[in-house]
């Protein structure tokens, strides 16, 4: 026998199931009066620094149908590229921007939508700057472990071209699955980011 290592195992993941909203967005499923406002709906206030943007899209299954029960979370840096987190040691993030959001996909169309700001660039491990990006996490019935991906911006061509994370994608044809396309809608820059769980257009998901 050898000495025992002191580590525990991570609790295994289980699907969020079809009723995840009861726990995360009870008001949205008409369980009212337990708490006033579901967490993560509003990211931006009048004091928040940075360019106002909308990100929206749908999550598609392998048959090309949108998931109407998906729940998405985003996590991003502020306009200067700082995270509002105690683990952020490089400086102090915008106190008026938490950087975390959560939205259910629409129960009829499957569309999700976040109103946020465009994040600044943050460094990779070796100090090179990554392109501006937003971490996206997707759970739903049928997804056994939450899926991590990243949203990049179509109008950041130069930064995307030198991003060390995008450079790690061996099949260059898959890079566009991470790039949200910009258009003006109702006077706001709106980025469409459709996520394909499987199939020809399968989004790149990360093991982080």
């Amino acid at each position: 026998m050898v000495q025992k290592l002191p580590f525990l195992k991570e609790s295994p993941s289980q699907t969020a199931g079809p009723y995840v909203h009861i726990g995360t967005n009870p008001n949205w499923v008409e369980i009212t009066g337990v708490w006033k406002e579901d967490l993560g709906l509003v990211l931006v206030g009048p004091e928040t620094k940075g360019e106002r943007i909308v990100i929206k899209g749908r999550v598609f299954d392998g048959a090309g149908d949108p998931l109407k029960d998906a729940l998405l979370e985003i996590w991003q840096a502020d306009a200067e590229g700082l995270y509002n987190s105690p683990q952020e040691k490089r400086g102090k993030a915008d106190p008026n921007f938490v950087g975390w959001g959560r939205q259910p996909a629409d129960g009829t169309t499957g569309e999700y939508r976040f109103e946020t700001i465009k994040p600044g660039r943050v460094p990779y491990k070796d100090g090179r700057l990554m392109a501006p990006h937003i971490t996206v996490w997707i759970v739903a019935r049928g997804i056994n472990t939450g899926l991590h991906t990243r949203l990049y911006f179509s109008d950041e061509e130069a930064a995307n071209a030198e991003c060390p994370v995008l450079a790690r994608i061996a099949h260059k044809a898959r890079v566009p699955t991470l790039i949200a396309t910009r258009a003006e809608e109702n006077g706001l820059p709106t980025y469409t980011f459709d996520i394909h769980i499987q199939g020809e257009k399968e989004t790149v998901f990360f093991d982080i």
């Binding site: 392998g62 490089r90 739903a140 790690r168 499987q198 399968e202 990360f206 982080i208």
Partner: peptide
């Protein structure tokens, strides 16, 4: 339900960057 909701490509391993090491409080 997992049949059509499972990625078929391998996940891309990513050493943690500040984007993964931070989180909301």
């Amino acid at each position: 339900t997992s049949v059509l909701r499972s990625p078929q490509q391998p996940l891309l391993s990513l050493e943690n960057t500040i984007s993964e090491l931070t989180g909301p409080v």
